[in-house]
């Protein structure tokens, strides 16, 4: 179909005038969706007619507010004519009674349903919670077993660290797995570090005294069993723990040396 011929036929002017049959109008509508130039043509025809008809209107600004109040109510044009003829009363009454009973039953059923749904929800939440607890217990157990194995392993060197001047009551233990270049630190005997401070672990060689940083214990407070794992590939002769500002220090602050211990073989 040639769109220009279609436009020039004058059918769109009739479309806007409302002169087409339902089928023809539907056709124009479908064509407009496919050909934007048709829609544009229709909009222009419409705009021209709107302007022309508007120019006939008496010049009076009738605000939307004057009809706004009539929009909420049900249609006001035309009276509602009751079609009800007086019927036998018992039919009315029994009808209403049946409706009330049905409505009551329905409400009761809905209530029951929502109550049951709530119960299911509660039970399912409890189940989730228990599963989480079980999972936590399992992983705790596995971790503990693992630690026990490490401590029992005869190739692991056990070094007790004694409390020093800064914290005479403190103590700690280092379990050094030389094969794996790893140390496990049991820090249960250290007090919680004050805000802004962390424990820093040092590997020491004694002659001359040379400290090597093994790392800081950043999650001391959060950790439950106070067992920490660090890398240690040094030929350590002793281990020390100092309290340092968060982030750790280049070299140990000796006044804040909490615990210290040397290898038994030395």
């Amino acid at each position: 179909m040639n769109i220009n011929d279609y436009i020039n036929s004058g059918i769109l002017e009739l479309y806007v005038a409302g002169q087409l049959s339902e089928t023809e109008s539907k056709e124009v509508y479908d064509l407009m969706l496919k050909h934007p130039e048709l829609l544009k043509e229709v909009l222009e025809i419409e705009a021209a007619i709107v302007k022309l008809t508007a120019s006939v209107a008496p010049k009076k600004d009738i605000q939307f507010n004057t009809i706004k109040g009539r929009l909420d109510n049900s249609p006001t044009d035309g009276k509602v004519i009751s079609l009800n003829r007086p019927k036998t009363k018992w039919i009315n009454y029994s009808g209403w009674a049946a409706a009330v009973v049905l409505a009551g039953g329905l409400i009761w059923t809905i209530n029951q349903k929502s109550e049951l749904e709530n119960q299911i929800q509660t039970v399912s939440t409890e189940k989730d919670f228990l599963e989480i607890q079980m999972e936590t217990s399992k992983s705790d157990l596995a971790e503990t077993k693992n630690l026990l194995n490490i401590i029992r392993d005869k190739s692991i060197i056990n070094i007790p660290l004694e409390g020093q001047a800064a914290a005479p009551g403190a103590y700690a233990t280092v379990y050094w797995d030389k094969k794996e270049d790893t140390v496990y630190l049991d820090l249960k005997g250290l007090p919680e570090p004050p805000e802004g401070k962390v424990y820093q672990v040092w590997s020491l060689t004694l002659n001359p005294l040379t400290p090597t940083n093994l790392g800081t214990i950043d999650d001391f407070i959060q950790d439950d069993n106070k067992i920490f794992k660090l890398e240690n590939a040094n030929q350590s002769q002793a281990f020390g723990i100092t309290l340092e500002p968060a982030g750790g220090s280049e070299s140990p602050t000796l006044e804040q040396l909490y615990t210290l211990g040397a290898l038994a073989s030395l």
Binding site: I49, K51, L52, T53, A54, A57, P58, F64
Partner: peptide
């Protein structure tokens, strides 16, 4: 469309 309808 107010004025247009008013005119018609």
């Amino acid at each position: 469309y107010r004025d247009s309808m008013h005119g018609v």
